[in-house]
Simulated scan of single mutants.
Amino acid sequence: MKLQAFLPLVTYPDSNSDAIASNATAIAAYLGAELHAEVITAHIPNVSNATSRLLLEVPELIRKAEAASRQRGEYLLEKIREESAMKLVKLTTSLSSAALLFVGEAAAIEARYFDLSLLGWEAGNSTSRATAEAVLFGSGRPAILLPETQAIGSISHVAIAWDGSRVAVRAVADAKPFLERASKITVLTVVGEKPLMEENGAERLAAGLTKRGLIAEATPISTEDYPVGIGLQVHAIARGASLLVMGGYGHSVVRDFVLGGATEDVLDDLRLPVLFSH
């Protein structure tokens, strides 16, 4: 059974960068997954009131913004078609529209029909962040954040952030396609930050993965010089990992997201691809 990957593309007011085409298709090719890319263009309502009637240029500004959104979406889809053809990835595409405040929610609903989501991540891009948070906490599916500053290839070494929690367990299960393909797995446990459910939990997880025919080792780390989410990424990169797997802590309140500390650290400063599961 082929994995089905979903790639939502945002275009307004901030657009995904061109890097999403290469990175998303690289992950799909590595997994042997089929990729569905959907451009979600912005629908901007024309508020009809006394003030707007005085601003005669408003309808024209809205028309231009929506046209620019569609044009950028078509450009991104063409880039993805080119990359998919080069990497022999089976691709389907679609185009939809949503009101600005509901773009993330539309992406989250669509993501429920796929095995995982691939999300472009650009520093300072509030549109991609809001969409990623909505998918992460609203889709019920794992999501991989793909940093635009990094060219992504094969994922040979996977790091797991392990604290024994329910979301960490789910993240490991959701990462199975990557774990099965990895030549090395490192289980990272932060010591001295909070009480752990089990002192030897990382060793038990590594042993369980080894029994399943995988190559895994447990590594305790200290992040005292960094926020936890940054420290996890720093240690993962230092050990040669090309993917970090972790549980996503947080919940949404009327589309404003209340995040756990490590989750927010990663979203604020993404340094390598991270598979989040909530």
Rank of each mutant, 00 (worst) to 15 (best):
Gln4Ser: 14
Ala5Leu: 15
Ala5Glu: 02
Thr11Asn: 09
Ser22Val: 05
Ser22Lys: 12
Ile27Glu: 05
Ile27Leu: 14
Glu34Cys: 04
His36Asn: 08
His36Asp: 08
Thr41Asp: 13
Ser48Cys: 09
Pro59Leu: 09
Arg63His: 12
Lys64Ala: 15
Ser69Phe: 01
Gln71Phe: 03
Tyr75Val: 03
Leu77Asn: 11
Glu78Tyr: 03
Arg81Lys: 15
Ala85Tyr: 03
Met86Thr: 13
Ser94Ala: 15
Ala99Met: 11
Leu101Trp: 09
Ala108Lys: 05
Arg129Lys: 15
Val135His: 07
Ile144Cys: 02
Ser154Ala: 15
Ile155Tyr: 11
Ile155Lys: 00
Ser156Gln: 12
Asp163Asn: 15
Gly164Lys: 06
Arg170Glu: 07
Val172Leu: 02
Asp174Arg: 10
Lys176Thr: 11
Glu180Gln: 14
Ile185Lys: 01
Val187Glu: 01
Leu188Ser: 05
Leu196His: 05
Asn200Glu: 13
Ala202Asp: 03
Glu203Val: 01
Ala206Leu: 04
Leu209Thr: 01
Ser222Leu: 07
Thr223Ile: 06
Asp225Asn: 14
Tyr226Asp: 08
Tyr226Pro: 11
Pro227Val: 06
Gly229Thr: 10
Ala236Cys: 06
Ile237Asp: 09
Val245Thr: 02
Met246Pro: 04
Gly247Trp: 01
Ala262Gln: 05
Ala262Tyr: 10
Glu264Ile: 07
Asp265Lys: 12
Leu270Gln: 09
